[in-house]
Design a protein around this nucleic acid. Sequence first.
DNA 1: TGTGTTTGTTAGTCTCATCTAACATTAACA
DNA 2: TGTTAATGTTAGATGAGACTAACAAACACA
Lengths: 165, 165
Amino acid sequence: MTGVPATITITAMETVGELTDLSEKMQMYVKTVHDIAAEKGAARVTDIARTLDVKKASVTSALKTLSSRGLVNYTPYDVVTLTEQGLQLAEELDRRYRVLHDFFVGILGIDPHTADMDACNLEHHLSETLHQRLVGFIEYYQTCTALKFRWDPNIGGFCADPDDA
Amino acid sequence: MTGVPATITITAMETVGELTDLSEKMQMYVKTVHDIAAEKGAARVTDIARTLDVKKASVTSALKTLSSRGLVNYTPYDVVTLTEQGLQLAEELDRRYRVLHDFFVGILGIDPHTADMDACNLEHHLSETLHQRLVGFIEYYQTCTALKFRWDPNIGGFCADPDDA
DNA sequence: TGTGTTTGTTAGTCTCATCTAACATTAACA
DNA sequence: TGTTAATGTTAGATGAGACTAACAAACACA
């Protein structure tokens, strides 16, 4: 058992990748297993390959790496699940994804599809401090009525939200 | 001459990396040459190696790649400068860096060092749409007095800026 | 239960970006 | 101007992560 502690504790400047010493690519495999497992109970190699747009041989190879790191339960020809540690990592990534996506769509007014792509690209690279500030900012935006504004595509800028008093 | 158009035009969902088909690592070399050249007029292999914490042999190798891509002027044993295309790329990256850093420090109240690290890690991964929205958001924050708030470390959350009316 | 299809694995190759070790060039200066 | 130190390059190896081609296992169903 190497690398990933039983409970993930990210310090201020650290990203998820730095904490786990896991490349962005490998993080994506963990996230993908999590997403597929959430939908279907467990992930198959074919599903993972299709989702990540890679060949099945690449998936097998990645799963061996992740298994040796204690992040996935892998036995040849069997379905794949996350270990407890893999689950914690996936949830940490998911928290980051959701905060980014919420911020992009809810506050910056970016269309959901672009927001999804940006959040996916960025979730691996946020420090814990930045993550927490975004969480706090979203909370403040939602509770503070004085703060309501909205992106206006006609102007190409932000302006006071007309729905708000 | 391949890959990079004479004038960079990034479309909505595209990142700088996708546009130029240049890896994050290679983007970092371009940015580093730009930074060193801004300070000293031109970059040397040793400077680049020290800045990026890699060996000089790695720098030589990267410079050959970037030279073949038309982004740096490289001749063996000579100082290194950016081509016009390399300069455009570096400036595009720098715009993203500054917007992120401004947002993190000026609005989210993150300390400059953490903000620097986050901006460095994230600058390669922003879509053009997200970049533009952040620019707009910062402008709005700066001009709209109703929008002033600030991170309060005691509370661990945002609150109305006491300096503001 | 045998046969074909789907799914998964293995073996080997490729590219990228790094490294080390050895060598070459340039610069400094006595 | 010759020697030494600093700087830069080459050649070859490594590891990550992708690929293809060939093979193996599991499944589906007549």
